[in-house]
Amino acid sequence: MSELTYVERAARVKLMIFDVDGVLTDGSLHYGADGEALKTFNVQDGLGIKLIQEAGIDTAIISARKSPQVIKRVADLGINHLHQGGHDKLTPFNALLEKTGLTAEQVGFIGDDVVDLPILSRVGFAVAVPNGRQEVLERAHHVTVAHGGRGAVREVCELVLHAQGLYERVMAQFLV
């Protein structure tokens, strides 16, 4: 049996999981005068997430860092599943599979650092950003052109929509 292409893998995605720092953001942490870490999110990435949700693809965030900004972003985007805190990302991933009833092959994940490897090595569609660690890039099925926090998430969302033949349907609302 031949190895699946990344497009064939994207066609099977029913749940897309996103890392935050380095994927939904560029990985920078800006500290305010009160010591609070600030994050910057890309609006085009956010619309990409909304588009795959409209197409019926579930979404989740699994992040090692805890951040009130992420809670706000999740609420703004209507992301169904959120886990923050701890370098053990595999435990919440397995819990998410159990909760949704999906298999790992039906899941996509986009990450950038070594803490993402336990999930990346198990999902059906493993994606890395080009500014990710070499160990992650080597194990990904696909590496985006855009960097983390700079459109990589939108790129992946559109790739999944194209692979599943859903892009034109979700874009029809804008192309009047």
Rank of each mutant, 00 (worst) to 15 (best):
L4T: 12
Y6G: 10
Y6M: 05
V7D: 08
V7L: 12
A11W: 04
V13T: 10
V13P: 04
M16R: 06
M16L: 15
M16P: 10
I17Q: 04
F18K: 03
D21P: 02
V23R: 00
T25I: 02
D26K: 01
D26V: 00
G27D: 00
S28Q: 04
S28K: 01
S28I: 02
H30F: 13
G32K: 06
G32N: 09
A33W: 10
A33H: 14
G35R: 07
E36A: 11
K39W: 00
F41S: 05
Q44L: 14
D45Y: 01
G46N: 08
G46F: 10
G48C: 12
I52N: 00
Q53E: 03
G56E: 02
I57A: 01
D58K: 00
D58L: 06
D58C: 01
I61R: 00
I62Q: 04
K66H: 13
S67R: 07
P68D: 12
P68E: 10
Q69W: 12
V70C: 11
K72L: 13
V74Y: 10
A75L: 12
A75P: 08
D76I: 10
G78T: 04
G78C: 11
I79L: 04
I79W: 00
L82T: 11
L82F: 11
L82H: 07
H83N: 12
H83A: 08
H87D: 08
D88T: 13
K89V: 14
K89N: 09
K89L: 08
L90K: 13
T91K: 15
P92T: 03
P92S: 07
P92W: 07
F93K: 06
F93H: 05
N94M: 14
A95L: 13
L96Q: 11
E98I: 13
K99W: 12
G101C: 14
T103W: 09
A104V: 05
A104E: 12
Q106Y: 02
D113A: 01
V114C: 06
L117P: 15
P118V: 08
I119Y: 09
G124Q: 04
F125C: 10
A126I: 04
A126Q: 04
V127K: 05
V127L: 06
V127Y: 10
V129Q: 00
P130W: 05
G132S: 04
Q134N: 14
V136D: 01
E138G: 06
E138H: 12
A140Q: 11
H141D: 15
H142C: 14
H142A: 12
H142L: 06
V143H: 05
T144E: 08
T144C: 05
A146C: 07
H147Y: 07
H147T: 02
H147V: 00
G148H: 00
R150A: 03
G151F: 02
V153E: 02
R154Q: 03
R154H: 08
R154L: 03
C157A: 05
V160H: 00
V160Q: 06
H162S: 15
Q164K: 12
G165I: 05
L166T: 09
L166K: 15
L166V: 10
Y167D: 09
E168Y: 12
E168I: 03
M171I: 15
A172V: 15
L175F: 14
